[in-house]
Design a protein around this nucleic acid. Structure first.
Lengths: 238, 238
DNA sequence: AACCATACTTTGTGATCACAAAAATAACTT
DNA sequence: AAGTTATTTTTGTGATCACAAAGTATGGTT
């Protein structure tokens, strides 16, 4: 009595200080972000409840929250699934990232002090280390942390939730893309960004972030990779 | 046994074809958007359930969804409230609107055909009519419809949910601002935007949208108005 | 009168149950 | 054998209940 495609979700130890709903949310979010759930695959409350060994209630709440963040999609049938990707949608998501994140960087720039700059530097060094180890998942997480640390320098910042929503939507594909990444050596523009901060050049910072995002995605969006991913989505929909 | 500040929510007839949760969501969303719930006022599930005459369950789901959209805020205490506004946050929200919406307009531009342009024109005429009647709430709604109709010309558009989140966060204040609006005559840049579309000038369209947002907010963000609103938030927090 | 410990109330969380709508399966007709 | 109807199962929705934690009020002590 097993379903079309089995869902393999990495379960973390549940901390009692956090609510079950929160734990379920983080678990499912991670599964979506890592592409562990095939796009188009229908998710049922009871199935997930059994999988995570909790009652249906926390699942319901987590699914609704993820849907509101565009990480999941509610169809007319009230069925929930990971949204399918198309080449055009992928382009729109990337362009949206560039528009919003370069803006967020520019708005954060006046607030970046030497302490935060040092933190950015040490985070960048960690990324270099992870690259030598070839730990792809770690690179992805640290890269997000770098961007997040930059944008949150602005204490009145309001765009991070929007940016995280875009990350979530791109997540499944980015993971697939970086799995092909070993061949190329990764180039990020973090050094360029930090140099711009030191030179107090806001515009250069904006350009560096734009280049960082565009290049980080450009190599990934080779026709073959994109096509493979979209195929995957299409077939999973069944 | 009444609470600090009574909540007055406009109740619409509930259509049976729509789920109770959806109806609750729309009702609460409208209440937030219209500033009917004071920022800082704690919302409890049971109170709202009694107010809307439904069980706590649909309220829980609606609150979680609105929180995910940044329309509401969950405090550490797990209490839910309308976020309070500050002058700096207000500025950030406006600048974010400009960055994202001008981008959305530019990405939508290649897709705007004569049919959609005609719809934009007729919507603009409706706005003019509403302005003569002085129907402020109607103006606000139609104005949103105008922007939405523009951005959704792009069939692969992904930014509308993000934009709507910003609208929700600015909603309470915009309402207060437009209530002072009768004195000035409203200038919008819709004509300029439509002219740019006719002249096939994407950059001019982007400028028009930027100006439309900035001016629509600039007159509203007079120091007195902003201060009054922030005061209101502060005192309601109690 | 100010402070603190105790009892009481309210509130969010999570589990279970009932029900109607939707899928999936089975049976049947053409 | 393909399509259509009938039956069974699965699934989302919403209501109710139990419980622990947070909040509030109470009462007593210094």
């Amino acid at each position: 009595m097993d379903k079309k495609s089995p869902i393999q979700i990495t379960l973390t130890e549940r901390d009692d200080s956090v609510t079950i709903t929160q734990w379920v949310y983080e678990t499912l979010r991670g599964a979506v972000m890592n592409g562990q759930i095939l796009p188009g695959r229908a998710l049922t409350i009871r199935e997930l409840a059994a999988l995570l060994d909790v009652s249906p209630m926390p699942i319901r709440e987590a699914l609704r929250q993820l849907s509101a963040e565009s990480a999941l999609e509610i169809q007319g049938n009230r069925r929930v699934m990971v949204p399918t990707m198309t080449a055009m949608k992928f382009t729109e998501l990337c362009e949206a990232r560039i528009a919003i994140e370069s803006h967020a960087a520019a708005r954060a720039w006046p607030y970046i002090d030497s302490t935060r700059l040092a933190e950015l530097h040490s985070l960048d060094r960690l990324i270099d280390q992870a690259q030598e180890c070839g730990n792809l998942e770690q690179i992805s997480i640290l890269n997000q942390n770098f961007h997040r640390l930059l944008y949150t320098a602005n204490p009145h910042q309001v765009t991070l939730p929007l940016i995280e929503s875009l990350w979530l939507q791109l997540g499944p594909f980015m993971r697939l893309a970086t799995s092909k990444l070993e061949e190329h050596y990764v180039i990020d523009r973090h050094n360029e960004a930090m140099l711009a901060i030191e030179k107090q050049d806001a515009f250069a910072l904006q350009l560096a972030i734009t280049a960082d995002i565009r290049e980080g995605i450009a190599f990934a969006s080779t026709p073959e990779l994109l096509h493979r991913f979209i195929e995957q989505s299409r077939t999973a929909a069944h």
